[in-house]
Nucleic acid binder design. Structure first.
Length: 573
RNA sequence: GAUUCGUUAGCUCAGCUGGUAGAGCAUCUGCCUUUUAAGCAGAGGGUCCCGGGUUCGAGCCCCGGACGAAUCACCA
């Protein structure tokens, strides 16, 4: 492994610590009695507090001024300044602990624990005056150095590739990132509390499914060896939650990781989280109310207000949200009344609106296409779009006033779908017929049409009470609530292409070829970056170049002989 | 999948029409006992993403590839 200069210096420091009898990775518990943020928050009001404090964290910056030093320590709650004074760290004559251990063997990034008392410096900063410190972990890689003054960030660590691949570094160095994920947890906790307060049961259902149902999407496929069958990672959990409603629970919900084998974008990650809920004896009107109440509560909980800044927009989650049927939405945004139109008429409308169509599209797909192309993005404020055509919604009950439509809503926020809900289809005869229509669509070339799940049909043939169900995209909700424009910012570890493994020739590779270890380490530096170059060069030229390098760098090794080089090349060839 | 942009020191980034690779921070060596993007003086650190090509000469030009970003396509 080729180490950078700074990495090598840190490894050397680790060895020095060991020589001094200091374990840089001690096993014992380190008892902490305060957090940085608590000290910063409370000390001003009562300066008698924290006079015997013990905290631990990572060194984020150091300012050494001879026999005194300031450094910044970061723990899970935030940062606080530490003050080290040589003659207090080292009470006796031996100043090793300060001069050597602290000043030379500690680095930015190391994790230490300190004991001391809190005071306020001349510059007015709350600071821990350290009387004793303990090395808890030596860091062997230099962190990116980010500085800040008057709210301005210098040398920010911003490269998305590195930030996502090395999220741990991102979290250390960019404090806003930590906050986003704390907010994500609060969104989920608020939602869970809201649902538990209503008495609904949190459940878990299979992620590995033999029939991927509940949504129109391409699944990931895997294989179970013992059963010798294909299994799919779920694209949704809808059909399992409904089975539980059949089983007699009044309300069930699940925070579910779902998996879709489709394109990636700043709105799509192959694995993502949805919360799905099903409640018996309710319809989609009831569900709209529940959904808007829940989201209003989340916004208030997180921001103290229903108004949330998202990009250039302020989105107001004050209930009630606007409600609009999809046909009215199309009328409003395109001027076309597509109610009762057949396929030919809809294709005509699409042509006028410059929307591409193909022959596999039915009435429902065409209407969805028009809405998606011309309307969806304009719904910035929360809006329930309702009453979608029946053929796009095979699991949804027909509309009570119009059998061509369904009792379905999607919640649009900031021009994107956030939630999707139905009055669930519980008529087993109709459900079977709808699955069969899906099969026809599949035969016509729709590769996302749903498969028939016979066991699900069996379940609802026993009788599923009238039920309303809703699914809400947690990642997109968190994006909105934390004002992030990319899903990668709200997932700790977004999917990335595997990191390219750099094929680098190292001195070890040369040693393996029988080249003496003392020369192997200099070959790369002397202008032979890989074996191919070595092969192409004449033996005498190699000899001259290496011995020239030896002389120039005053190396304390014997000059290389032409005979040695011929031996190397013999092994290579 | 398409188009555009990017990839140079540990980090953030310069690098003109092709002529021996630069800055700030970080690192190292000194000095400095309340500093705070600490300061002052000095030093070291590079397979310019990879592979070909053109050229006397390529970080820069040409071709191919890897990875990332944005936009589009796909995507309930």
């Amino acid at each position: 492994m080729q180490l950078s200069e700074q990495e090598q210096i840190r490894r050397n420091a680790l060895q020095e610590l060991n020589k001094l009898g200091i374990n840089a990775y001690p096993p014992e518990e380190y008892k902490v009695n305060a957090l940085a943020a608590d000290i910063s928050n409370n000390f001003h009001s009562d300066e008698t507090l924290y006079q015997d404090v013990c905290i631990a964290g990572r060194i984020m910056s150091r300012r050494i001024m001879g026999a005194a030093s300031f450094l910044e320590l970061m723990d899970s709650s935030g940062r606080i300044q530490l003050y080290f004074k040589r003659d207090e760290i080292c009470q006796g004559e031996d100043k090793t602990l300060y001069n050597i251990v602290f000043k030379r063997l500690l680095d930015i990034g190391d994790i230490i624990g300190v004991k001391g008392f809190v005071f306020i410096t001349k510059m007015g900063e709350i600071t821990v005056h350290v009387k004793e410190f303990t090395i808890l972990t030596k860091s062997l890689r230099p962190l990116p150095i980010v500085k800040e003054k008057d709210g301005e960030i210098y040398d920010a660590f911003t490269d998305p590739d590195q930030r996502y691949r090395q999220r741990y570094v991102d979290l250390i160095v960019n404090e806003d990132v930590k906050d986003t994920f704390v907010k994500r947890a609060r969104v989920i906790r608020t939602m869970r509390d809201f649902l538990n307060d209503k008495g609904y049961l949190e459940v878990e259902t299979p992620i590995l499914q033999s029939i991927p149902g509940g949504a129109a999407a391409k699944p990931f496929i895997t294989h179970h060896n013992a059963l010798n069958i294909p299994l799919y990672l779920r694209v949704a959990n809808e059909l399992y939650l409904k089975r539980l409603i059949v089983g007699g629970y009044d309300g069930v919900y699940e925070f579910a990781k779902d998996f879709r084998n489709e394109g990636m974008s700043r709105f799509h990650n192959p694995e993502f989280t949805q919360m799905e809920i099903y409640v018996a004896y309710k319809d989609y009107f009831w569900m709209m109310e529940m959904t808007e109440n829940m989201i209003e509560k989340i916004a208030t909980e997180l921001h103290g207000t229903t108004k949330v800044q998202v990009g250039d927009n302020i989105i107001d989650f004050k209930t009630p949200f606007r409600r609009l049927s999809i046909l009215d939405a199309i009328k409003e945004h395109t001027g076309f009344d597509v109610n009762d139109m057949n396929v030919a008429q809809l294709v005509e409308v699409c042509k006028k609106l410059e929307i591409e169509t193909d022959s596999s599209m039915g009435v429902g797909k065409l209407i969805d296409e028009i809405f998606g192309e011309k309307c969806e993005s304009s719904f910035i404020q929360p809006t329930f779009i309702t009453d979608y055509p029946v053929e796009m919604s095979p699991l949804c009950k027909r509309h009570r006033d119009n059998p061509e439509l369904t009792e379905r809503f999607e919640l649009m926020v900031n021009g994107k779908e956030l939630a999707n809900a139905y009055t669930e289809l519980n008529d087993p005869i109709d459900q079977r017929a709808r699955f069969e229509e899906q099969m026809e669509l599949a035969a016509a070339g729709d590769d996302e049409a749903m498969l028939i799940d016979q066991d699900f049909l069996r379940a609802i043939e026993y009788g599923m009470p009238p039920t309303s169900g809703m699914g809400i995209g947690i990642d997109r909700l968190v994006m909105i609530m934390t004002n992030q424009s990319s899903i990668q910012e709200v997932l700790f570890f977004p999917q990335m292409r595997p990191e390219a493994v750099k094929k680098v020739t190292t001195s070890d590779d040369y040693i393996k070829l029988g080249i003496s270890s003392e020369w192997a380490e200099y070959l790369i530096l002397a202008g032979f970056p890989n074996i191919e170059v070595l092969k192409k060069t004449k033996p005498s030229a190699i000899e001259q170049k290496l011995n020239g390098f030896r002389k120039k760098n005053k190396l304390d090794i014997a000059p290389v002989q032409l005979e040695d080089i011929n031996n190397w090349l013999a092994i290579i060839n």
